[in-house]
């Protein structure tokens, strides 16, 4: 059975492969969070081995601007964590990434074929729509391209050449990361594709 890699460590692994993830930090207090925000909108979440599905359990707070919002979010998250009886958890703050199409890029290990990479329309409905494409790692340019075009949502995810190239490059980097590391399960869900670029805003690496 695998173990969830610490968020900061996951962040470090991704950046080693040039995969962008939202700027983030662990905090001890509401004032730490206010300092991190510096007036910009932030997201605050509870990170714990015991609670893997954060948004379902009310462990995520979005779009926090003001010091007042940040402080109350901080105490609400602690209450939720207490209610769920989490004995070990940390609170993470993260820059709020601009709106955009959400995709999931993931990895798993198939007992027959080994390391697999997945692409799909992301967000919380991913398991409902199951609009995903899967390949054996490592993948090449052609595979990445065909993964995108296999999706029913390919026009949403890659409406133009630029977006297509962006998603392809993410896939190739993740494939390399999966190939070079012993990762049992990976969820980058969602990765938000913004006008300027993209950022993985939730990282789950199980080693």
């Amino acid at each position: 059975m695998g173990k969830l890699v610490d968020y900061a460590e996951a962040h470090r692994i991704l950046s080693k492969y040039g995969i962008n993830s939202a700027r983030s930090a662990y905090i001890e207090s509401a004032s730490d969070a206010i300092k991190f925000s510096a007036g910009e909108p932030i997201v605050m979440k509870v990170i714990s081995q015991q609670a893997l599905h954060k948004s379902k359990n009310g462990l995520v707070k979005l779009r926090l601007y003001t010091a007042k919002d940040i402080s109350s979010a901080f105490s609400e998250l602690r209450d939720s964590a207490r209610k769920l009886k989490l004995d070990k958890y940390k609170i993470l703050v993260q820059e709020m990434v601009a709106e955009g199409v959400e995709i999931i890029v993931g990895g798993s290990v198939d007992p027959q074929f080994g390391k697999m990479i997945l692409l799909g329309l992301g967000g919380i409905y991913v398991e409902i729509f199951r609009d995903v494409a899967l390949r054996v790692c490592p993948i090449g340019e052609y595979d990445a391209e065909s993964m995108i075009h296999q999706l029913r949502s390919s026009n949403v995810i890659a409406p133009d050449k630029k977006a297509d190239a962006k998603v392809k490059s993410i896939l190739l980097k993740v494939s390399k990361m999966l190939a070079e590391n012993e990762i049992l399960e990976l969820d980058l869900n969602p990765i938000i594709l913004t006008r300027a670029g993209y950022a993985a805003v939730d990282l789950r690496i199980i080693k």
């Binding site: 695998g2 969830l4 893997l52 999931i104 993931g106 990895g107 798993s108 198939d110 007992p111 027959q112 074929f113 697999m116 997945l118 799909g120 991913v126 398991e127 199951r130 995903v132 899967l134 054996v136 399960e185 990976l186 969820d187 869900n189 789950r204 199980i206």
Partner: peptide, 14 residues
Amino acid sequence: AHSHTAALAGSAEA
């Protein structure tokens, strides 16, 4: 499975 990916990448899908 602990992740969406592992839940979506079953044997038939592989």
